[in-house]
Design a protein around this nucleic acid. Structure first.
Length: 120
RNA sequence: CGAGGAGACCAGGGGAUCGCUCGCGGCCUCGUGCCGUGAGAGGAAAGUCCGAGCUCCACAGGGCAGAGCGCCGGGUAAUUCCCGGUCGAGGCGACUCGGAGGAAAGUGCAACAGAGAGCAGACCGCCGCGGUCGGGUCCCUGAGCUUCGGCGAGGGGGUCCAUCAGACCUACGGUGAGGGUGAAAGGGUGCGGUAAGAGCGCACCGGCGCCUCCGGUGACGGGGGCGGCCAGGCAAACCCCGCUCGGAGCAAGACCAAAUAGGGGAGCACAUCGGGCGGCCCGUCCGCGCUCCCGGGUCGGUCGCUAGAGGCCGUCGGUAACGGCGGUCCAAGAUGAAUGAUCUCCACCUCCGCGAGGGCGACCAGACGGGGGCACAGAACUCGGCUUACGGGCUCACUCGGACC
RNA sequence: GGGCGAUUAACUCAGUGGGAGAGUGCUGCCUUCACACGGCAGAAGUCACAAGUUCAAAUCUUGUAUCGCCCA
């Protein structure tokens, strides 16, 4: 069985990258998440998180980011050639890991379909 | 057992699997790689309210202005913090709380009410001067008012006292005792005194000032003498007195260094002008000029960046805070920002059922089954404090009340 | 992370120790055939919250909460 990792190489880390994705990318909205993605040919996938202070205090924000990282780690599958930014809404603070994991899976499925359609 | 006050401490634990960040070692296909191994949030990490280290501002200079602090002594790198004490307030008590210098340096403020509110004041009342009038009491009558109980202006009569007293009036004077207003009206009680009064006088009590003695390093406490009631409140009002304070903050600052645009540095000189050194004045430095040189900054990266005024134990000094000496232990460094996820077992709290067991007794204790709960909160340069948030647990001496032996 | 500021009626704001106010909006009446404009009257506030100083606090002091601004 392939091990499920989410190391630093899979993360979006630069301010310029965030700006590029959020300004030029496409948008998918689930219940508590806004997911923005932009294709990036001939490269692996990269994921970024954005949890603002409106979501809660530092403990709550850290918890939401951990839930999202865990969800991405489990659900990302064979996605590639794309940059994705997950933006948490206020309700994410109380939705719990299971709910967020469902929403991440749904958003990633829609991104995969859109990319496949575009390629063909 | 109940109620209460004070201090110290903990911040669920074990196991399995999958992950994240950093250090070290190894491997290769040298990468934002893989493997192994070790470490990985708090008592408040929080608020950013004080104090420091550190870095830059030329040195951190003078005066004014400004800001902060404010009982006394000690601790400390330092403080507005801590410890011990003094005084005041609260509590039966253990104990708690206190921004606690100066209002007999000055300037100011006090709405409304009230006669008068800041070198006070005469509305009612009381007294004196002047004027007018006989007055008290009982009975009858009775305008009017009424809470239907009564209250009663005025008039008539009986009786007592007598030209003193008293009542009324007025325009004057005295009074600060009484009424009433207010948050506050210039000590309290008693006696004397006076036309009436008043600290006007006296005694005691309380407070204040000055002198002096004793105890204490001191704040202050205790005793004696004299004065005299003249001296109200607010300085978290201006202010006065004393002490302290240069500014900014690791996004400080140093180094490496794309694209784009053209500027930048060093030396010498500087009357005026402009700018910097937190504000103003002084002082001082830099620029505009001349000569020489080629690097500077943004994106990004590296350093700063984690071993410290550290914890614990023992001992000595000290009432204590704390300090000296010796031993020992620990020690996250991320940067779109790590310290997590799932499962399981056991603790802890609480509710319901059940109520075994122990004790002479007040009472203790809750086995067993089921349900619920397990807080506040996440390092961002580092320390010392303060403040605020917080479910519960543990421990040590104490206080008050009750019951029992 | 660090440095600052604000909070008063539904909205925008004044008020710097004794009376809580202005404009817009809202409600009612008048005016008009009707509406707008206009006129008159009225309601509406824990002065963000909690302690303290003071006789007295929106105002002064301290703490808490919320919102906003600046520094790469």
């Amino acid at each position: 069985m392939k091990r499920l990792r989410f190391s630093r190489s899979l993360r979006l880390r630069k301010s310029a990258d965030f700006r590029r994705v959020q300004q030029g990318g496409r948008r998918v909205v689930t219940g508590e998440l806004v997911v923005v993605y932009q294709p990036r040919p001939d490269a692996g996938p990269r994921f970024g998180l954005a949890v603002s202070r409106k979501v809660g205090n530092a403990v709550v924000r850290n918890r939401v980011k951990r839930w999202l990282r865990e969800s991405i780690r489990v659900e990302r599958g064979a996605l590639s050639e794309v940059d994705v930014v997950f933006i948490a809404r206020k309700g994410a603070a109380v939705s719990g890991l299971a709910e967020l994991r469902l929403q991440v899976r749904g958003a990633l499925d829609r991104i995969r379909r859109a990319l496949r359609q575009k390629r063909t």
